[in-house]
Design a protein around this nucleic acid. Structure first.
Length: 287
DNA sequence: CCACAGGACGGCT
DNA sequence: AGCCGTCCTGTG
């Protein structure tokens, strides 16, 4: 593997902070110079914006242009999506202006499943720390510019970890869930290759059979991985707050149940509900 | 020291 | 069916 570089003209639906800080990924970190470095698959990339260009540079297993186009969802027309969603109502329009550079990454399904099981009842700094330790312990090293990075462990690699090993890495009560899910996937009792060919409803049902995957985690996996089911609407405490505030003017949380919020979102935002969720979430989190 | 934040799950009504 | 305590660790 060797260093590669790829540049494209800057597009308006591409902002590093919007993409990497909207809660969809855990392995991208900001450098001193405002660029980001991240690990995905067997790639380590630095992304920066300079002179109205987006510059992707780093160690890339396959052709960097194709890798980047796939991972950063570059073939999807976000301008069209934003203008369609902006018509729906004022709050959504405002949130879209705020997070205009958001794109949904096409992340590896296996990595997304494990990452979001770890995300349960957890905060972002700690989730990031756990995933780094898992990768360092079980993943393959990748060296770039004298620094060592670690790929996320493969199914086989993570299968070497015992529940106790996972506990030592700080997973807490999620250790058992990650262990059992890894076993189900390794033995193909849940076959990830087959999941890809199913429809949205079947995918969700399958994911929900994995230990540690409940409704919210299932939706995140479907939205943030290569599955790209844009119609799901992950409801966490933040989204619940926004929806209650925006549409019901209820100062107290928990007035609306998760299912009710989900149903409302699908009714209002239709098959782009997942994107709407991201704009609203990012807006509320940062503002 | 305690309170709190964050989803899944199992046990209880 | 719905509600609620518990699971673990970091932060204030």
């Amino acid at each position: 593997m060797e260093e590669q570089i790829y540049k494209i003209d800057l597009i308006s639906a591409f902002n590093l902070e919007h993409i990497f800080e909207c809660g969809q990924c855990f392995r991208w970190n900001k450098e001193q110079n405002e660029s980001y470095i991240g690990v995905f698959k067997n790639n380590v990339l630095n992304v920066k914006i300079e002179n109205n260009q987006i510059i992707f540079e780093g160690i890339c297993e396959n052709n960097i242009k194709e890798t980047v186009e796939e991972y950063f969802d570059l073939k999807r027309d976000y301008e069209k999506i934003k203008s369609e969603l902006s018509k729906i109502d004022e709050p959504l329009k405002t949130s879209i202006k705020y997070g205009s550079g958001i794109r949904l990454l096409n992340q590896d399904l296996w990595e997304t499943i494990i990452s979001f099981i770890i995300s349960a009842n957890n905060n972002i700094p700690r989730i990031k720390g756990i995933i780094e330790r898992l990768s360092k312990q079980y993943g393959k090293p990748i060296i770039w510019k004298e620094k060592i990075y670690y790929a996320f462990p493969t199914i086989e690699e993570l299968s070497k970890a015992t529940v106790e090993d996972l506990r030592k890495l700080g997973l807490g009560f999620r250790d058992q869930r990650v262990y059992e899910t890894t076993k189900l996937i390794r033995t193909k009792q849940v076959n990830l290759e087959e999941v890809k060919n199913k429809n949205s409803k079947e995918i969700r049902e399958t994911l929900l059979t994995l230990p540690g995957v409940g409704p919210k985690v299932a939706d995140c996996i479907m939205l943030f991985s290569t599955l790209k089911c844009l119609d799901v609407f992950p409801v966490d405490v933040w989204v619940r707050r926004v929806m209650n505030e925006l549409y019901f003017k209820l100062p107290e949380e928990k007035k609306l149940k998760r299912e009710q919020i989900e149903a409302l979102a699908k009714e209002k935002y239709g098959n782009l509900a997942g994107l709407a969720q991201q704009y609203l979430f990012y807006w509320k989190r940062e503002a």
